[in-house]
Design a protein around this nucleic acid. Structure first.
Length: 461
RNA sequence: GCGAAAGUAGCUCAGUGGUAGAGCUCCACCUUGCCAAGGUGGAUGUCGCGGGUUCAAGUCCCGUCUUUCGCUCCA
């Protein structure tokens, strides 16, 4: 069986498979199964020392790109628990609750509301004609109780998406931050969905993190803005996260696929070993959300154009990216097994390397003394201390130098700084590049500036 | 939730009723003057968890939890 499993392992062309990523993630401290000492908890994962750096880096890049570099997008951090009426207005109470039936014979599962009426009436499976079970209500929203009394009046939901926190604060932001349409509100945070099944490591989990930006525009200009953000978001993956363009494409939602709020929707999809899957959604949510909240809270939610004195409910272009899912994409896309010649026994020498964009790499610079005697270790530690002001660094003196390079390759460290005997005399160091394995000599005084420049100009080969 | 398979060291796995194993990893020292796997020594496990059968269970039986693959869907 074990051998069968190996044969069935799906790899991309660089040798990355889900199993190898999971194994590397655990082994090197990116992602651990949650509550592992108790046997693990279904579909929950913890981020280890390297994983948390990677995740934070992605989040910071997104935040910078979506707020600080934009003059008309502001940030927000809304609570995970929101007034229950929020989810009635949003349509989640209605639409996130699926009646499920199973066929007792062929074990296929259906959403009862999507079956032909005659099959519903006589409880017959459309596939095999077998008998269907009674429908069971399955709501994708987690519930809990707010306050000490656990009655039906105290029920609150854990938010299934962060977007509603933005919509309910639309008026607050307009009234207090002098934004004018077109403008956006960005938010990063956790969301929770009680998925029927989770799968593929951190790809689909019940607790996940979203990076969402809702862009408010004048009705009629929404199609233009939709196109604009579509383009921007695709560029982000290639230029900011360093994802290979051939592993990305758009998927447009067809009629039946569109969510209850959407007029048009494109997904940025990534080519995983298990197929093309969504990474980010760019949706035209129209005035659905603000309109519904207006209706449900009984207050006018609209926008008064200060120039024309026109009053309207803005349309919303949403970009909704998965942060935890981005961690997986970065790892998956960066993972390469490269054969670089032969070893001493004539066998192919394979190095495992993560070609992470330096922006996202958990460690930017490893500082390594060529040998640990003759004062080189002390000098290297000095240099590491100096660099750690500006970069995430790592010091390693154990084992042969080539071995230490390989260790850094495996966790995606883009630069190794090696301190040798000449460093003592000339006050310079070797910088070794992860991708090309080339080396250059850099004066110690220029080191930080040079590394900063290399990160800025980085282009994935 | 239903069906199928699996769970033994940090990782990959061997171990079919009789003292818990291997390779890699990890730690210390030596070696190493720029691309891993050289030397010496060392650490690591309630064999997922609970119960049962047996003189004896990692191994057989029952339960349970978790993971993987399908059904489902979507950030």
């Amino acid at each position: 069986m074990a051998k069968e499993k190996k044969a069935n392992q799906i790899c991309n062309k660089f040798g990355a498979s889900m199993e190898k990523i999971v194994s590397l993630a655990k082994r090197r401290g990116f992602v651990y199964p949650s509550s592992e000492i108790y046997g693990g908890l279904s579909a929950t994962w913890d981020y280890g020392p390297l994983g948390v750096e990677l995740k934070k880096n992605i989040q910071e890049i997104w935040w910078k790109e979506m707020t600080r570099l934009q003059d008309n997008i502001v940030g927000l951090d809304a609570a995970i628990m929101m007034h229950p009426r929020t989810w009635e207005a949003s349509g989640h109470v209605e639409n996130f609750s699926d009646p499920l039936v199973d066929c007792k014979q062929c074990k296929t599962r259906f959403r009862e509301d999507k079956l032909p009426q005659e099959n519903i009436d006589n409880k017959q499976c459309p596939e095999c004609g077998g008998e269907l079970t009674e429908p069971r209500q399955f709501n994708l929203m987690f519930t809990t109780h707010l306050g000490p009394v656990q009655d039906s009046g105290s029920v609150v939901y854990l938010r299934p998406e962060t977007a509603q926190g933005i919509f309910v604060n639309f008026k607050n932001v307009v009234d207090t931050s002098r934004v004018q349409i077109p403008f956006g509100i960005a938010q990063v945070g956790k969301a929770f969905r009680n998925e029927i099944t989770t799968k593929n490591f951190i790809f689909r989990t019940c607790e996940f993190e979203q990076m969402e930006m809702q862009f408010f525009v004048k009705p009629g200009t929404d199609d233009e803005w939709f196109e604009y953000w579509k383009e921007q978001r695709m560029k982000y993956y290639v230029e900011q996260l360093g994802i290979l363009p051939e592993n990305l494409h758009f998927h447009q939602h067809g009629e039946g696929e569109l969510a209850h709020y959407a007029k048009d929707a494109y997904d940025v999809e990534y080519q995983y070993p298990f197929g093309w899957e969504e990474q980010e959604g760019i949706h035209n949510r129209t005035d659905f959300d603000l309109g519904r909240h207006s209706e449900y809270c009984g207050k006018e939610i609209n926008y008064l154009d200060p120039q024309t004195n026109e009053r309207y409910i803005p349309y919303v272009i949403e970009t909704s990216a998965g942060l935890t899912r981005s961690v997986l994409v970065c790892l998956m896309d960066a993972y390469h097994e490269e054969t670089i010649g032969e070893d001493k026994n004539g066998k192919p020498d394979v190095r495992t390397v993560l070609h992470l964009h330096p922006n996202v790499a958990p460690i930017k610079v490893a500082v390594l003394p060529l040998v640990k005697k003759d004062g080189l270790a002390e000098l290297a530690k000095d240099i590491q201390k100096e660099l750690s002001e500006d970069f995430a660094t790592f010091y390693d003196q154990s084992g042969a130098i080539g071995r230490r390079y390989r260790r850094q390759d495996e966790i995606g460290t883009p630069f190794c700084v090696t301190v040798d005997y000449d460093s003592k005399d000339n006050n310079d160091v070797t910088v070794r590049f992860r991708d090309s394995m080339e080396q250059i000599r850099v004066p110690r005084a220029e080191l930080a500036a040079r590394l900063r420049q290399e990160i800025k100009n980085y282009k994935r080969a």
